[in-house]
């Protein structure tokens, strides 16, 4: 590791997770903790794209891990043996249930919705000039996903019809996180510390990240639409201040409906890992029965938005 990174005196090397596409390890250099991620050869995406994304987000003032070293070299010259990146580690909590309920996060809960808005506002000032990222039409992409999943879901067909008929005008393109929600954010008792998990970053509409954050699944049982803790207005207001671009509630809610359908389709994929035998797991199997939660939320939201456009009722 020292040869690969130039870091001397590495201690406490331990493995954190081993996902399908990468391994994550933690280690110390002196009193500083760092994270190294090693890409597996089977990974669908070049880890170096994420290095570029993290560097762009850091430069824009978004709280993200700083890239300390990385290599895209997969030849024998690279002692880690595969693509890797090393970032500084953040201490804090990622488990949504704790952040939503524990007393020590009570004051954080008050400031987080605005901090989310502010972080996204800064991020979305990054233009589309990040190497290796694509701009994919989100409706077309997920319609194809629905057609190819081998199941029929009339509720999602209704949702796609409504989404097509009520699509907001195509906005500015920018760097979008793609999975900005509790679970991927490190929270301290003072508030937001770092935004993690940039694997789904892409080029898209700035409102996409805001809508995704408000999908009911990411409220984890909390009452407020913004990650279970805040009101739409707090998010939109802080976002507007940080980005200089004010997104309407109507547009946000359109993206929330699309996000709801998207999570429903992702639930189908999760269950499919079990059903096709690639990973046998009752937890994944059970997620297949969460699809209807998203059908319900999408239809409820559409009904509500048809009645009074942009209603804030949740």
């Amino acid at each position: 590791m020292t040869a690969a990174t130039g870091l001397e005196g590495i201690t406490q090397l331990r493995r954190l997770t081993g996902g399908a596409s990468r391994e994550t390890w933690s280690f110390q250099v002196g009193s500083e903790r760092h994270i190294i991620q090693r890409q597996r050869l089977t990974s669908p995406r070049d880890m170096h794209v994420e290095v570029g994304v993290l560097e762009a987000a850091y430069a824009a003032g978004v709280p993200v891990p700083r890239v300390l070293a990385s290599s895209r070299d997969i030849s024998g010259e690279n002692p880690v043996g595969t693509q890797f990146m090393i970032v500084n580690a953040f201490e804090g909590e990622t488990i949504a249930r704790k952040i939503l309920r524990d007393d020590e996060y009570a004051s954080a809960r008050k400031t987080l919705p605005a901090q989310f808005g502010s972080a996204l506002g800064k991020l979305h000032r990054v233009s589309s000039a990040v190497e290796g990222l694509e701009d994919v039409d989100q409706i077309a992409f997920y319609q194809e996903h629905l057609r190819d999943c081998g199941q029929s879901h009339p509720a999602f067909e209704i949702a796609f019809r409504w989404l097509e008929e009520n699509r907001p005008p195509v906005g500015r393109r920018c760097l979008v996180h793609g999975d900005f929600r509790m679970g991927n954010l490190i929270i301290g008792n003072e508030g937001l510390r770092a935004v993690l998990d940039w694997e789904l970053a892409h080029i898209g509409d700035p409102a996409e990240d805001l809508g995704w954050l408000c999908v009911r699944a990411w409220r984890f049982g909390g009452a407020g639409p913004v990650g279970g803790i805040g009101a739409y207005e707090d998010l939109l207001e802080a976002y507007g201040e940080a980005s200089g671009e004010y997104i309407s509630l109507e547009t946000l809610r359109w993206w929330e409906v699309l996000g709801t359908v998207k999570w429903g389709l992702m639930c189908i994929s999760q269950a499919a890992y079990h059903l096709t035998g690639s990973v046998r797991s009752h937890e994944l199997a059970a997620i297949g029965r969460r699809v209807c939660e998203n059908e319900y939320d999408a239809l409820l939201a559409i009904r509500e938005l048809k009645k009074g456009k942009g209603s804030t009722r949740v």
Binding site: A155, I158, R289, C292, E293, E295, Y296, L299, R303
Partner: peptide, 16 residues
């Protein structure tokens, strides 16, 4: 839309 909503509610009565 009403029929589909009712069928989704029936699914939820079992699922959650």
């Amino acid at each position: 839309e009403e029929f589909v909503m009712n069928s989704v509610i029936e699914k939820l009565r079992v699922a959650n």
